[in-house]
Design a protein around this nucleic acid. Structure first.
Lengths: 333, 333
DNA sequence: TTGTACGCGTTATCAG
DNA sequence: CTGATAACGCGTACAA
């Protein structure tokens, strides 16, 4: 491994000067800069990033914690984050939290121990208190898809209330009256918000919310199927809205097993617009979650707050959008 | 930040001793070990991993290069790799190569410059020569899904020939005679292999290979649709095998637009068993690619070769398996 | 504009 | 078993 010292020797300058041409650029004459550059090329010099980190107290690495590394939701998010960072010569270290308190906590400590300069966190199980406490530590972080008033500045979120509202509104506008709803777990804020938006749209159309039409799922595919079965056995409805696409997928599969024709006999909507929603049958009408943009924004947050780079202005709340496909019957009676 | 020095002072021992209790365990009396441990706890000491890396010339990081960070194929792979490494306190740095020579090369240099101890590479565009040359460098690497005879020891692959064979055999056993095939790009070895396996099964059943039934796709969804259109307009077939699931998805969507009923009027198979294949309609019969196991094996390769850990024996070629769902008509006449 | 010298927090090689 | 002390490769005041 060729070091800064060998370069300085070959170029006939001090090693401080070599260091300068690599970093500051300022205060070094063109003549010596050229000498050094040539020497570096000749030796095929590559700075040792570890040594740089130790000396500068900056690892140029950012930790990325997601619930699951596989999974259709996180892929695009991770992708956009990685590309924004690599363009700035930062690297991203990934970790999975598995929606579990201990895992999430361990992962965060792991990342901090790795000297990450900053963290991007998509956590579900950790308490607000823990995160507020964490914000007092020395490693800055952004929260993706989570809002905590005390550290609002750290949060990049989707307007889930509006998303829930848009979904219900679309169903109502197609003439549906009896709309069943499979929610996410109510200890998750986003699940609450989506349901609230749903209720809000109902209220606007003067339709009382019917508890009979509500089933509490857990955002997983199976609970969509279970929810459908439960609702189907206990009540009547022409439309079903699920709080995310996975549950909608499970519900649809189950509905088909029950010999229902979609969307004629049952209209279904999801939420998230995960990429495979256009592959299922019928292609799923859903609410778009601009996860790419939000991932990029989180990366920009870090770039701006941690690395003091100038970035486009930071946007903290994003807007959901209706995506119409073919799983909803238009103009129901 | 509390350093090893402060710990040593509080424990009343030397720096070296503190370092010993952290690493070797060997050659340090129980009494002093206890003193040191207590001091560490009391100060909440966290070793600085960067300093450790510099001194030990080992970053405990491994680079992971995939074509796309999103995408159903890579997610599970990255997931299993991350979890095996984190269990050993190694961290993984991700990068995307976008199936492009320049991107892939840049990514590898990026990872090497980051002092990764080892690399796991899923590259598509880079030449064999480049990789052979790379193997002479100082950073060890495994190749996932690519076989290069000169560096066979570095390769972890699927038996694609057998996969192609299994798919065709299944179709043949269901009574299909006219089997169309949409291949991957023929400059990719795996695409070639799958096609060869296909031909092999045909030969075993004494069915001559018909060039009219072959369309060269590029592994992307759209080319599946295009391939179907082309074949559908030019020839007759009761079955279609696609060299991967994305193309099968595209072909199915297109076939349905052509008012074909699946699988009654057309049987379709894919390859990879990407997770969403069970969500499409009809659920896709396909060939399983044990990408999880292979990712884990790649991680073990690194653990063994780079970190000299003892691991389960390294398996370099994996077996594909038939996954029967509902996209193939059974017992066609 | 350039060079000197020290510090970053550990590991590792010697003696003792 | 333990303690000095020299690396590791680079950044950065401070001095020149």
């Amino acid at each position: 491994m060729t070091t800064i010292y060998e370069v300085s020797k070959l170029a006939g300058v001090s090693l401080a000067t070599v260091s300068r041409v690599m970093n500051n650029n300022t205060n070094v004459s063109d003549a010596t800069r050229k000498k050094v550059t040539i020497a570096m090329k000749e030796l095929g010099y590559r700075p040792n990033s570890i040594a740089q980190s130790l000396a500068s107290n900056c690892s140029n690495s950012v930790g990325l914690l997601v619930s699951e590394i596989h999974g259709p939701f996180y892929g695009p998010m991770m992708g956009s984050i990685e590309s924004t960072f690599r363009a700035q010569a930062k690297h991203v270290i990934i970790a999975a939290g598995h929606s579990d308190v201990e895992h999430e906590q361990q992962a965060i400590e792991f990342l901090i121990n790795r000297n990450c300069d900053g963290l991007i966190l998509h956590v579900e199980a950790l308490s607000d208190e823990y995160l507020i406490e964490l914000s007092k530590g020395k490693t800055p972080f952004v929260l993706l898809n989570r809002y905590i008033p005390e550290i609002a500045h750290h949060c990049i979120i989707l307007d889930n209330v509006k998303g829930g509202y848009l979904a219900a509104k679309h169903m109502l506008e197609q003439g549906h009256i009896n709309i069943a709803y499979i929610s996410g777990p109510q200890w998750k804020k986003d699940a609450q918000d989506r349901l609230n938006g749903h209720k809000q749209a109902l209220a606007e159309h003067n339709i009382p919310f019917n508890e009979q039409l509500l089933y509490h799922g857990d955002f997983m595919e199976d609970s969509g199927a279970e929810g459908f079965k439960y609702l189907h056995n206990n009540t009547q409805f022409s439309a079903l809205i699920c709080a995310n696409d996975e549950m909608a997928t499970g519900a649809i599969a189950c509905a088909r097993e029950s010999a229902l024709v979609l969307p004629e006999q049952l209209s279904v909507m999801g939420f998230d617009n995960v990429f495979f929603t256009r592959h299922i049958y019928p292609p799923l009408t859903t609410i778009n979650y601009p996860i790419n943009d939000m991932g990029k924004m989180a990366a920009n947050w870090i770039l701006s707050e941690v690395y003091k780079k100038t970035t486009p202005p930071i946007q903290t709340v994003f807007e959901p959008e209706l995506v119409v496909r073919q799983s909803v019957l238009v103009n129901a009676q």
